[in-house]
């Protein structure tokens, strides 16, 4: 049995007296993208913060690449976090730094040399299609551009694990499609393990039904057939802090649960 990259075990998290997560357990394997769906306030974003160890759960354990992030001290966490990337809901770009400095942040912190950093920044910004915006400040960018810069900032050190907190929320269909394709390409071409939090079912199903292949010189996206499970994506559905569904999209769509049916409609 292959060890999971991320293992969440019986996690309970309280905010005040309210249990946002109440005994949540799941595993994410290498190269897989786990889509966490659920209504607003169902604890989806909290789950990501717990995996990144930005907050500690009140009960339960979380293992990332076999190491228990819930019991590590803050000073020992950077080492693990450097192998992970996170795209925040509101982008959370450093507003006192330019796009170049934002994207280069991680490499700069690791002490890479300037020429190498510049090359990687241009390459990564090219990947998200924002090479022109390199000298702008976050305040000069639109919401979609910010989201893509945030994606570039997380991707620059080629993390093995990516956490996406509603990366497409509030964006127009063209931009969200672009971001979804970037995430699919990372999953299928770079074998990145991902956790994708969203409440937009359209984006979730795009991720679950499309796959990327390396065409002649460019990346192509294909849609999988009716009964195929090519896209390496599984769903986890949260309701009131509990998991009410876990599995692939084909089964989710056929679910007879009234709440899930209403959510998908």
């Amino acid at each position: 049995m292959i060890d999971p990259v991320i293992e969440v075990k019986n996690v309970v998290k309280f905010y005040g007296d309210n249990a946002v997560l109440d005994g949540v357990s799941f595993r994410v394997f290498r190269g897989e993208t786990k889509i966490i769906i659920g209504a607003s306030g169902s604890g989806k974003s909290t789950l990501l913060k717990l995996i990144m160890a930005l907050e500690k759960p009140d009960e339960g354990k979380i293992f990332v690449q076999g190491r228990d992030v819930t019991s590590l001290r803050e000073r020992d966490l950077p080492e693990i976090r450097q192998r992970m990337g996170m795209v925040f809901q509101e982008s959370a770009l450093f507003d006192s730094l330019t796009v170049r400095e934002n994207v280069a942040y991680r490499l700069y912190e690791l002490g890479a040399d300037a020429a190498d950093i510049e090359e990687r920044v241009l390459e990564t910004l090219g990947f998200v299609g924002l090479a022109d915006a390199i000298d702008k400040y976050p305040a000069e960018l639109s919401g979609g551009m910010k989201r893509r810069v945030a994606l570039a900032r997380a991707l620059i050190s080629e993390p093995e694990i990516m956490l996406y907190d509603e990366p497409t929320a509030g964006l127009d269909p063209v931009t969200s499609r672009r971001i979804n394709e970037l995430i699919i390409a990372l999953r299928d071409l770079k074998n990145v393990t991902g956790v994708f939090v969203t409440h937009r079912m359209r984006d979730a199903f795009t991720l679950a039904t499309q796959y990327a292949i390396n065409g002649s010189g460019n990346v192509r996206f294909r849609r999988e057939g009716e009964d195929l499970c090519i896209a390496n994506t599984r769903f986890v559905m949260l309701r009131d802090g509990k998991i009410i569904f876990e599995g692939p999209d084909e089964i989710l769509r056929r679910s007879e649960d009234a709440y899930i049916k209403r959510f998908l409609a």
Partner: peptide, 14 residues
């Protein structure tokens, strides 16, 4: 409040 501190932590900085 704009999550920049969390972003910093997520990028591996104390």
């Amino acid at each position: 409040v704009t999550e920049q501190v969390n972003a910093m932590r997520a990028l591996g900085t104390d």
